[in-house]
Computed example of a mutant assay.
Amino acid sequence: MINRRLRVVLAEDSVVLRDGMVELLGARGCEVAATAGTAPELLAAVAEHRPDVAVVDIRMPPTHTDEGIRAAVEIRERTPATGILVFSQHIETALAARLLAGGAAGIGYLLKERVARTSDLVDALHRVAAGGTALDPEVVTGLMRGGRRDRVDALTAREREVLELMAQGHSNRSIATRLVVSERAVEKHVAAVFTKFGLRATATDNRRVKAVLAYLGLGAD
């Protein structure tokens, strides 16, 4: 059970949706340190409050195109310890790739219509705050279409299933439950992925994140 209280900055230009999310997140044990309706307000709020996670809508005033993603990229550059969770009505594969190009650690991208429960959103916030990933399955599919297939050709069908669920942010235990296999079996598949991708264990590298980037065709050669 998750007990740590997360500090969140929420960027959403719809006042009704923003207020509703503040109430829902507060009821789930999150502290919404500030809200923002524009990208400049978001940047100022993150700089002031240094939250665990910034929840960002892609399309914000004034043009409602990519202001949110541009702000998210800037947040990553200025305060890399702040996680980013894009929460959008749209699948913007090119924009997601732009954000992930700087590294997938602490990055999430969820579609609003697919978050059926507030607990799903809060779980994603905690994964992102801890340096993990939380990518919507449709976003993963879209990124894979533009990725390099040769990176995954060496994987078995089961290993690809495991890696896709890793990209969505699932733990080994969660993957085991979804695939109806033992957690030990999942550990073996994950280890095989690391080996085939040439990802050696180090004191600082997050191999799960590196494997996800390679899977999506965004990792370094």
Rank of each mutant, 00 (worst) to 15 (best):
I2D: 12
N3F: 11
N3V: 15
R7L: 04
V9W: 00
V9Q: 01
S14D: 10
S14G: 10
V15H: 13
D19F: 10
M21V: 12
E23P: 12
L24K: 15
G26S: 14
A27W: 02
A27S: 14
R28V: 05
R28K: 11
G29P: 02
C30D: 05
A33K: 04
A34K: 05
A34G: 03
G37M: 07
T38A: 07
A39M: 03
P40L: 08
P40S: 08
L42Y: 00
A44D: 03
A45D: 01
V46K: 02
A47M: 05
H49Y: 02
D52E: 14
A54Q: 00
V55H: 01
V56M: 02
T63P: 14
T63R: 14
T63A: 15
G68K: 08
G68A: 05
I69N: 04
A71N: 03
E77Y: 04
T79F: 00
P80I: 06
T82D: 01
G83L: 04
L85V: 10
V86Y: 01
V86F: 02
S88I: 10
Q89W: 15
Q89I: 15
A96R: 04
R98E: 07
G103F: 02
A104L: 03
A105Y: 01
G106C: 05
G106A: 05
I107Q: 09
L111R: 14
K112L: 13
E113Y: 06
V115Q: 05
T118R: 11
L121C: 10
L121W: 01
L121N: 07
D123R: 11
H126F: 03
A130V: 06
A130L: 09
G132V: 06
T133S: 09
T133W: 02
A134C: 07
L135W: 01
D136A: 15
P137A: 10
T141W: 05
T141Y: 05
T141K: 14
L143M: 10
M144S: 11
M144P: 02
G147I: 12
G147T: 11
D150N: 07
D153V: 15
D153L: 12
D153H: 13
A154G: 15
L155V: 05
E159H: 04
R160Y: 02
E161Y: 11
L165W: 01
Q168A: 12
S171M: 09
N172I: 06
R178N: 15
R178S: 07
L179D: 13
L179S: 11
S182F: 04
E183T: 12
A185G: 11
V186N: 04
E187P: 09
E187G: 15
H189N: 08
F194A: 13
K196S: 13
K196Y: 00
L199M: 05
R200C: 08
R200M: 03
A203S: 15
R208G: 09
Y215N: 09
G217W: 05
G219M: 04
A220G: 12
D221W: 12
D221M: 14
